[in-house]
Amino acid sequence: MTSALTLNHYLIVSGLLFALGIAGVIIRRNALVIYMALEMNLNAANLALIAFSKFNRIIDGQILVFFIIAIAAAEVAVGLAIIVALYRRKQSISVDELTTMRL
C-alpha cells in the first residue's frame, strides 16, 4: 500500500497545532486554559518528532517523545499544584490579577 503522504504533511499539521497553542497562551486569561494550550504545544512537538523518526527511520525520536511525555506528566502535577496554591491565596486564577511575584 503506497501512501501519498510525505514528511511535510505531518510537519504542517504539527506546526498548525503549535500555532494554535501559542495563540491560546496569549489570548486566554485563565491560568488553567493557558496550561492546556501549553500541553497542546508539547503534543505538536511530539508529532513532529515521531514524524521525523518514522521518515528518517531512526528510533531516537520516539525515545525522546517517551521522555517528553514522562516529564510533561511531572510538570503538569507541579504546575497544577502551584495553581491551586495561588488560588488559595488570591481566590482567582486569572493571570490579570496575578501580577506580583510574592504570594
Binding site: I12, G15, L16, F18, A19, L20, I22, A23, G24, V25, I26, I27, R28, R29, D96
Partner: peptide
C-alpha cells in the same frame, strides 16, 4: 476576552503559520 490579547494572539499565530 481582552481585545489586545485576542489581536496579539491571532497575530503571533498567523506569523508562525507564515513562517511555516
Amino acid at each position: 476576552f481582552k481585545i489586545l490579547g485576542v489581536v496579539g494572539g491571532i497575530a503571533v499565530g498567523l506569523a508562525f503559520v507564515w513562517e511555516l
